[in-house]
Write a protein that binds this DNA or RNA. Sequence first.
DNA 1: GCCAACGTTGGC
DNA 2: GCCAACGTTGGC
Length: 150
Amino acid sequence: MRYWLMKSEPDVFSIDDLARVGVEPWTGVRNYQARNFMRDGMSEGDGVLFYHSSCEVPGVAGLARVASAAYPDPTQFERKSEYFDAKATHEDPRWMLVDVRFERKLARTIPLVELKAQSRLDGFALLQRGNRLSILPVTKAQWNVILGME
DNA sequence: GCCAACGTTGGC
DNA sequence: GCCAACGTTGGC
């Protein structure tokens, strides 16, 4: 089993939204590296840190699980979608996604500033310079450190 | 294949 | 709102 961090802007889709729907297809990823993590790295049952970005207190807000293998993101074929991609075809889909299942909210959001201050998280992909990826790998050790900060 | 221009992300 | 970082696009 592997571990991941997935970013979401809570104004758009928060951990509470995930709690409400239960399972959410992770549509709209349009970055190749992030796509490759979903397509080549993720397996059903993997652990997910649900991260709130671009908000008052950015940080890890909850836990989720990968709930499917990767499959083509249907929004790439929807002409009216903001995620439409004219170069994608059903025969040769360009964008993939996984389903994400709510597990639980953390007792508190663990703020980015605290993650940065935790020396045991040196090397954590989220904290590396200029990182903008919306999906990142997390080691088991990093996972345990972060949950220990709850 | 290079690289300038442009767009997006996301913290602050 | 600013700006650093960096991915993508497209001309050449």
